[in-house]
Amino acid sequence: MSRVLWGVGVAGLVGLSVASLLIGPAGLTPLQAVSALIRGDALAETLVMREIRLPRAILAVLVGAALGLGGAAMQGYLRNPLAEPGLIGVSGSAALGAVLALQTGLAAAHVLALPFAALAGAVLAVLIILALAGPRGGSITLILAGIAVSALAGALTSLVLNLSPNPFAASEIVFWMMGSLQDRSMIHVWISAPFIGLGALILLSQGRNFDALTLGEDAAASMGVHLGRLRLALVLGVASMVGAATAVAGAIGFVGLVVPHILRPLVGARPSALLPASALGGAVLVLMADIAVRVILPTRDLKLGVLTAIVGAPLFLHLIYKTRLQGQL
């Protein structure tokens, strides 16, 4: 069963990646597109394929995987299906860090300042959430703390962008709150991929510890899980992935909520299986959303977060309702 599921997932990822490379306003035939991408024969077509569409497709996969895996890890650690990086303010705080790095000129002075600043913002938010929600992650405190952190990060992001001397900055509040992959370049791939890869390694290596944690903290500790180390891995892993993803694509919400929710019944409740599956599922979801924004409004920059929220928010309401029925809220 699980092997079939992985096969379907990987096939979907490959199919959607190809579709993402073939869809665009330049009007290339599939043959021209493939030839330009692989052989690089015609200059214009090659630039379109290698410098515009390829980074976009790669970033959709990286950002999606980061958000899906980040969500599954937060939920595994807090043992709460409502914990999602976007909803609890981790993405928003990462965006604030990124905006600060851009507007202070740090990002222009050093190329890695942007992802590091976003990572710092994300670390801060994860620490605040963990401190407020406590180790068990009670739903009410988690959501309330998340609302407060998101609201503050969003307000400060708007403030920084409104104070910028650049006349375009203020109009980009929407980008930082909703996310988009339009006109990104390979530079964005290079600055985000190492952080996302490192975060993924950290989180995936903790799969068995997350499994043990489903039995409760005491049981996990008695099985030899070092809870302090697990928490550190969670903070660094989630912040690294979500920070880098947000630095290049803005804050895209609900991916980390929708994907683990759909996959949990399919792969079983074991986090060690859910974590990699959510990375794959997140990549598929963001690829789909990024293709959809180009098909629905090809001439406008429709934000990814708009689509993920339309899918994710009703699901979030459903989850709250279910949690209440179970008497956990």
Binding site: E51, F168, D183
Partner: peptide
């Protein structure tokens, strides 16, 4: 380009435009 940074102006020095 204006002072300060913006994502809107990123497109001005996108690698594809630099190549052109």
């Amino acid at each position: 380009p204006y002072p300060g940074a913006s994502r809107s102006e990123d497109v001005l020095h996108h690698p594809a435009m630099d190549a052109l």
